[in-house]
Simulated assay, not measured.
Amino acid sequence: MASELPHATAPFIIFSDFDGTITTRDSNDTATDELGFGLERRRELNLEILNGKKTFRDAFAEMLGSVYAAGHKFDDVKAYLVKHITLDSGFKACFEWCKANNVPLVIVSSGMKPIIEAILINLVGAEDAAKIDIVANDVQIDADGSWRIVYRHPESGFGHDKSRATAPYKALAHSPTLFFCGDGVSDLSAARAADLLFVKVIPDHTNDLSVHCDREKIPYVAFETFDKVQEVVARVVSGQTTVEQELAAPK
């Protein structure tokens, strides 16, 4: 029921991917590249996902499996990522604006919730981290120390179908405006799920979500840091502009 939804009465909601979007580096890519089987194999798998040859669910499990296979315990991986992952330079200011203007910000991630929580606490502090809802996959750690990702939607090729996080809000009577911020192959399921899609596009970096959206003709607003997200959302919230106008503006 709508009353059971967090933020069910909010007129505007920002949903955002975490890794590589709120952070400058993807923690799962970092773990795979530096602790698992490496960048080359990971990029091969990403391209297979983009080209429909492999599901994200299966490829991602293979990436994380390579980290465990290399002998890394889950807590050691978490500590490594907390040490090496940094925050998008505009995120804190954007989140402060969200708090001041009663615009909820919800993380919707294909990563593992315990790692996201640990990184977020390190980057923004425990008090602010507690104010951000996290919808993500989980992890199973066995008595022998072995671990694996536990998907929210194991029946889906996405593992975590991010469109399911926004779908209940689209059905609300007051039709809240939904924003989604993403950057990569884990966000393909959310590309059409929001009213306004923000795609992180960094020059000289891989930008898989923008490739997908350009190919599928899905409109979006490109951004490098959350400063741009804040500016656009503020204009829409204030009534200065509309979602349609922002999507029609030159990239």
Rank of each mutant, 00 (worst) to 15 (best):
S110E: 00
D88I: 10
A118D: 13
L123E: 07
P104F: 04
G90K: 03
V124S: 12
V103L: 00
N102F: 07
F91I: 01
L87N: 08
A129W: 03
E117W: 05
N101E: 04
L87E: 08
K113E: 08
S109N: 12
V103W: 02
I119P: 03
K113I: 00
L87R: 07
I116E: 02
G90A: 04
E127R: 10
N101Q: 06
N102E: 09
A126D: 15
V108W: 01
S110Q: 06
L120H: 00
N122E: 12
L120D: 05
I121G: 14
A129R: 09
A130T: 13
I107C: 06
F95N: 02
F91W: 07
A118N: 13
N122Q: 08
C94Q: 04
T86P: 01
G125N: 12
P114Q: 10
F91T: 05
V108Y: 00
D88G: 13
K92G: 05
P104T: 01
E96R: 12
A100T: 09
A130G: 12
I85G: 04
M112E: 10
E96G: 10
D88A: 12
E117T: 14
E117C: 08
L87F: 07
A129C: 08
M112F: 06
C98N: 03
A129T: 06
K99Q: 15
K113P: 03
W97Y: 11
V124I: 15
E117G: 01
G111R: 01
L120E: 06
V108T: 09
A93V: 09
E117Q: 13
P114V: 12
N122A: 11
I116W: 02
V108F: 02
K92T: 14
E127T: 03
S109P: 07
F91M: 06
E117M: 10
C98W: 02
L105K: 02
K92L: 15
P104Q: 00
C98L: 02
I107M: 00
S110Y: 03
M112S: 12
P104E: 04
S109G: 05
I85W: 06
I107P: 00
V108E: 00
I115N: 13
N101H: 10
A130D: 08
L120I: 06
P114D: 07
V124M: 14
N101D: 01
C98D: 01
W97Q: 02
D88Y: 09
T86I: 12
V103A: 00
I116N: 02
I121V: 15
E127N: 06
C98F: 05
